[in-house]
Design a binder for these strands. Structure first.
Lengths: 342, 342
DNA sequence: CGTGCTGTTTGCAGCGCTGCAAAACTGTGG
DNA sequence: CCACAGTTTTGCAGCGCTGCAAACAGCACG
């Protein structure tokens, strides 16, 4: 299988005239090696061009040096941008990232954290679940270090990193109300078990109305199966067909917003004059679209870094630390879809 | 539920009353196992909930069961969409995908295919290089199975999968000329070693003019460092500031096109009435933007599948197969940015 | 009843590394 | 010169699996 012999610890040891264990100590920078031996070994390492066999090391240590990141869809810009940060953060800490895309398949999501065999491929998982039920979470491998992104309140056995969805959504809605809009719609509600994120946003949407002393027109809260362009486009069509269509829309993702805007333009509506639109996630698309999209911008870099750090902490500790609720900051970015052209 | 200790082949062997080697044979579905033993072993496997240790298997076999995919940027929709296909294709063939993002760092790209230690983490690489020089390719680990995406003619030691960039670019340009446009610009040229893809597109651009008996105005060929929105936006500004601005633009990626359109709209130009725009890649954004973007659509699914298949073939064969040039089909998709609102 | 054949099962070594504990060295003080 | 503590180095076992070749069937045939 191997073409050409590899250079092993033993080869180096032979050349340096020490035991292979000592070479290992040098290579790994362990303490208690005299400068003399260290130098001698180092010279042998250089001369032979020795490079450690990661597989063997992993087997011996019972760890893999890899973490898995599980996302529903890779081509969703939000996940792609987040992933980018995670990969960067993991690499600087000596970890490789294994990407798993579930295609929103719940069975697959479940299997990933349940099956033991995977356990050896990665030391921990950062999970951005689409439809992970509480049950699946409950009967997961309890030794698997886990950090969850998006919305899913921690039960104390894992960390959860996200932004304050309720507050952010309230701010988004208030922004629309502050423009003087009176019929504000919401696109993206998911009133069932696996739609926690959506529900928190709906909650913020309601709170904004309440705080202004306004009633929510339930017909203006539209459910969507996911948060992509098509969902936004379809939902917007439905809204425009109402007897009293909205004059503003809070979309639960920027993709939804882009889809909604697409429909509005196609129907000859002006954005924001006829209908103001706000999104969520601050993906790059929204900064270049026509019109550009007002949005809630979560601090993705911070989410990524925090997730990786907490996970590695979990991996590193004998007794798992308590599961934390970690909040990254967010901010409202106002662009043309609510403010109009400059 | 056993905590701590894993269940090994030996445990199963003991329970089934056979040797561990036989259990291995059963688990791996090797031939020459009688139905009786197979059943007995299987029962033991099920009873104990045995799951093989991938690490150990890999070490013993000297392979990792993983392939690496190297892309410059994850948040470029084109790569994300491609990756999605690659991950899917690899998984169905029992391979995991390790993602490496180079951030366009050439040193990193180089190191990835040069360093031997990585060799053990993955059995092969699918590479979408940004700036991989011929030299770096030349002194790579010659035993590393390699498939390259994008533009980079094979030197016979690896496979190359892509579409026919010259033809596609010629078609794109001809489409603009067919609309009666007389001053067609090109955004994205990269006339230096690592810009092969760009150069092929420029070549197609020129061929289209030649085939129509038209001269190319060199001032209308704009260089950009990359192919993203910002590049497109900047280049378009430059073009609009020319004494005789173009009435059509061939952009070397959809992102560039979206950036260019952004600038056009901001400057009060109508698309396509004043300036027609065509992109390249057919990313989802272009189907929902305002206006929607005419584009060259490569068959991404086919590119992904082909790349994975060729790579696994390479990994599997003792004597490496000859490096092939593989062409996936493409097609022109006409949308609003050249055809106007239907 | 041995001989050869095919098909099935097994034992052993070893992939290349690290954990562990013992061994071999220091150097110090009595 | 010995006992003792501290530092450095070593040997060995073993992580859990598979490659290899040998051992052992079972069967047909002479």
């Amino acid at each position: 299988m191997r073409r050409g012999r590899h250079i092993t610890l033993r080869d180096v040891a032979a050349l340096a005239g020490v035991s292979s264990r000592t070479v290992s100590n040098v290579v790994n920078g362990y303490a208690n090696v005299t400068e003399a031996t260290r130098a001698r070994v180092q010279r042998a390492v250089d001369e032979l061009g020795y490079q450690p066999n990661v597989l063997a090391r992993n087997l011996a240590q019972g760890r893999s040096g890899q973490i898995a990141v599980v996302v529903p869809y890779l081509d969703t810009p939000y996940f792609a941008e987040l992933l980018q940060g995670i990969i960067r953060a993991a690499r600087t800490r000596g970890y490789n990232v294994l990407i798993d895309q579930t295609d929103g398949d719940r069975a697959h999501e479940r299997e990933l954290i349940t099956k033991r065999s995977h356990r050896l491929l990665f030391d921990g998982v950062i999970f951005s679940p689409l439809g992970l039920s509480q049950a699946a979470l409950a009967d997961r491998d309890p030794t698997l270090p886990l950090v969850i992104l998006g919305e899913r309140v921690s039960d104390g056995t894992f960390d959860h990193v996200g932004i304050d969805d309720v507050t952010a959504s309230r701010q988004a809605t208030e922004h629309l109300l502050d423009l003087g809009r009176t019929r504000v719609a919401a696109i993206g509600d998911q009133p069932y078990e696996t739609g926690e994120a959506a529900q928190l946003r709906t909650q913020g949407f309601r709170e904004a109305h309440r705080s202004r002393g306004l009633a929510v027109d339930e017909r203006l809260i539209i459910r969507t199966p996911r948060f992509n362009r098509l969902d936004g486009a379809t939902a917007m069509k439905h809204l425009l067909d109402l007897p009293e269509p909205p004059d503003a829309v809070f979309c639960y993702s920027d993709l939804v917003a882009l889809g909604a805007i697409h429909t509005l333009i196609a129907r000859g509506k002006r954005v924001p004059e006829d209908v103001a639109v706000i999104g969520y996630d601050n993906i790059e698309d929204g900064a270049y679209s026509n019109p550009t999209v007002t949005t809630i911008s979560p601090d993705k870099e911070m989410i990524a870094t925090t997730a990786v750090e907490r996970l590695l902490l979990r991996i590193g500790s004998r007794t798992p630390p308590p599961g934390l609720e970690l909040r990254a900051p967010h901010q409202l970015i106002v662009r043309e879809s609510t403010a109009g052209r400059g």
